[in-house]
């Protein structure tokens, strides 16, 4: 196993970097989109509610592997060429937005109406109320679920190997078929995923503790 790491470690690390970059990008793009969808659902306007509901049903109700293939092949069918990495980021973003929107919706609902009423009476715009009053309070409630979604996203990103994005699972596949040592190769990839997950969960806990103490001390 050590010789395998010695020979291919750099390639795998490179793949890990791609994994993190794609997942991070999707998480960030999915965030405003998720907030937007949550706001649409909470707006009470029939068209907005229905559209946002349909969006969620689609992206939560179909397999992400198939979603990624569609996002990759659909533009090609329309005569557009998408770089696999971009297709991967788009696919993962659209998918995580659906899941994140439910987290934001639950978080925003949990902030009492009086919080925004006080802000409206003082002339704050809707945008300012969302960004400065509602989301900061909702974040404390949403953080555990958001960390969970980030972990899911990183794991889901292994699926973009099917559209030849050179992330860690794809690299592992290449190494496995070149060295005929699939078990060890995939075990190394697994440990890399686990390490990232542990780091992320730890960071989440730390942040949660900091947010809990802010506003009290």
């Amino acid at each position: 196993m050590w010789d395998l790491i010695a020979q291919n470690g750099a390639v795998l690390l490179d793949g890990l970097a791609v994994t993190l970059a794609i997942s991070g990008a999707a998480l960030l793009v999915g965030c405003p989109l998720g907030v937007f969808l949550a706001r649409a659902t909470l707006s009470g306007r029939p068209i907005a509610v229905a559209t946002s509901g349909l969006y969620r049903s689609f992206w939560r109700g179909t397999p992400i592997l198939v979603q990624l293939l569609i996002v990759f092949y659909l533009p090609a069918a329309l005569g557009l060429t998408l770089v696999p990495t971009i297709a991967a980021i788009i696919g993962l973003s659209l998918n995580t937005a659906a899941f994140q929107s439910e987290i934001y919706r639950a978080g925003l609902v949990a902030v009492p109406a009086g919080q925004s009423e006080a802000a409206r009476m003082l002339g704050l715009s809707r945008r300012a109320i969302l960004l400065r009053i509602e989301l900061p309070q909702a974040v404390r409630l949403m953080l555990p679920a958001l960390v969970g979604e980030a972990l899911t996203l990183i794991k889901n990103s292994s699926l973009v190997s099917v559209i030849a994005v050179t992330e860690i699972t794809w690299r592992a596949q290449q190494i496995a078929s070149a060295t005929f040592r699939p078990l060890e190769t995939y075990a190394i990839a697994l440990i890399a995923y686990l390490a990232i997950a542990a780091l992320l969960a730890g960071a989440g806990l730390l942040l949660e503790r900091r947010l809990a103490s802010a506003g009290r001390s």
Partner: peptide
């Protein structure tokens, strides 16, 4: 406006 339950922003 001043509300019964204050509605100060706790954060």
């Amino acid at each position: 406006m001043v509300f019964q339950h204050f509605h100060l922003w706790p954060h």
